[in-house]
C-alpha cells in the first residue's frame, strides 16, 4: 500500500524551500500518518532530490502534516535549471511512500 491510498498532497514553493502537505482522506487514518510518515522517512524517500533538512509540522484537527524541505529547489525557483523549478511534482513522489496498514 502507498501513501496515496490514504492521503492527498500539494506542494508549495518559496525560494529554495519546498513544502508538502499530507492530508488524510479519513480521520481514522490520521494516526497512521503520524506514526509512519516521519521527517526521516520523507527525507530518505526523496534522497538526492533534497540537499537540506526536512521539518514536520502537525495539524491534528484537520488530519494533516506539513513537511518543510530545505535546499530542495535547485538553488531557488527563479534561477533553477530544473524542468520543474517550482518542485510542483514533488508531492506525487511523496505519495508513493510505502505504508503498512497492519503495523
Amino acid at each position: 500500500m502507498q501513501l496515496r491510498d490514504i492521503a492527498h498532497s500539494r506542494t508549495g514553493d518559496k525560494g529554495n524551500i519546498s513544502n508538502i502537505s499530507v492530508i488524510a482522506y479519513r480521520p481514522e487514518d490520521w494516526p497512521v500518518l503520524l506514526e509512519q510518515v516521519t521527517a526521516k522517512r520523507v527525507r530518505d524517500h526523496f534522497g538526492a532530490l533534497i540537499a537540506g533538512e526536512v521539518v514536520r509540522y502537525e495539524l491534528p484537527q484537520i488530519g494533516a502534516l506539513n513537511f518543510v524541505m530545505y535546499e530542495a529547489l535547485g538553488g531557488g525557483v527563479t534561477r533553477s535549471l530544473a524542468l520543474d523549478p517550482h518542485g510542483k511534482c514533488l508531492s506525487s513522489r511523496l505519495l508513493t511512500l510505502p505504508i503498512d496498514m497492519q503495523g
Partner: peptide, 17 residues
C-alpha cells in the same frame, strides 16, 4: 469541500503557527 480547502490552507506555508 474540506479536502480542497485543506490543500490550499497549507499551500506555501511553513510553520502553520
Amino acid at each position: 469541500n474540506a479536502a480542497t480547502c485543506k490543500e490550499q490552507l497549507l499551500y506555501e506555508v511553513h510553520d502553520p503557527k
